[in-house]
Design a protein around this nucleic acid. Structure first.
Length: 269
DNA sequence: AAGGTGTACAACCGCACTCAT
DNA sequence: CATGAGTGCGGTTGTACACCT
């Protein structure tokens, strides 16, 4: 830690006796809301002082951004939003605030919580490392296409046959994309047809090192800069489905793919 | 009904960065 | 250029609540 940090922290510590922590009371919320409504946000240390709150500026900022802000949406992450999170996470990794910018009304904290409580939990259930290629490929090539299929109202409902996904996709390479768009027509297993795979467009420099792959048929024609700049609306933003991604059938498929990829990795090792 | 356990979410912490002075 | 305040971000922890036995 640098000298600045030590100094700024010691300044905070001077007031630590007066500073409240823990859950916010209704009164505190009201004080903060009224103050921001009158004076605007920013300069959070001043806000904390002037509003008569015995809170740190950081705490006020966090409370405002994650809870009190008028446009914040809480709870009920829709199916569409879940897929958006999965896709953007596959591009950018744990860049929660960046992902949150593409989900109007959602906060980085909420998305992070969603990831940790739902996605990590499922990875544990599947005995997959969430950072493993197995899990990522399973998400990309099975889970998300199936969810897209459900979302697209015009698509026909058909389920992939219970065959080895290893056979269908013997070389699931993260740098591959699929040319056959999946909007309304793909099934999870069909999406794995590696014969139609193509190389991805060049990576953005800042995304190098992340697992930079879009889900087939989801964002394959998008360039990350467009997504980042909001030039492209993700196809599922704003839906109202509360359906969970984590149903038994999808879990079975995920387990299948994880197992297949593990077998393949062991074989090649 | 009571206690244990798991889950979801709010909040905190540490660090890094920006910007004004 | 150095310093300090403010802010943003990602990781982690605490806790209320639901569910199970």
């Amino acid at each position: 830690m640098d000298v600045n940090m030590k100094k700024s922290r010691s300044a905070e510590e001077v007031n630590s006796e007066d500073t409240r922590k823990g859950p916010w009371s209704v009164e505190e919320d009201t004080l903060l809301q009224n103050y921001v409504a009158t004076h605007g946000d920013g300069r959070w240390n001043s806000v904390a002082r002037c509003a008569g709150l015995k809170r740190s500026g950081k705490s006020c900022r966090l409370r405002w951004l994650n809870y009190l802000r008028p446009d914040v949406r809480r709870g009920n992450i829709t199916l569409q939003e879940q897929i958006t999170i999965l896709d953007l996470h596959s591009r950018w990794g744990n860049r929660w605030s960046k992902i949150a910018r593409h989900l109007p009304g959602r906060t980085d904290n909420e998305i992070k919580n969603y990831w940790r409580t739902r996605v990590l939990k499922q990875a544990r259930n599947l005995k997959c490392d969430v950072d493993s290629e197995q899990f990522k490929d399973a998400l990309r090539y099975v889970w998300m296409p199936r969810l897209i299929e459900r979302i697209e109202p015009s698509s026909e409902t058909h389920h992939p046959p219970p065959v080895s996904l290893f056979e269908l996709h013997p070389n699931p390479t993260p740098s591959l994309h699929h040319q056959n768009g999946l909007h309304g027509s793909c099934s999870g297993s069909n999406a794995l047809d590696s014969s139609s795979a193509k190389l991805e467009t060049p990576l953005e420099p800042e995304d190098m090192g992340h697992n930079n792959v879009s889900v087939p048929g989801v964002c394959e024609n998008m360039n990350d800069r467009d997504v980042e700049q909001g030039n492209i609306t993700l196809p599922f933003a704003g839906g109202d489905s509360m359906e969970s991604l984590w149903d038994d059938e999808n879990l079975w498929l995920m387990q299948q793919l994880c197992d297949d990829l593990e077998i393949k990795d062991n074989f090649l090792a």
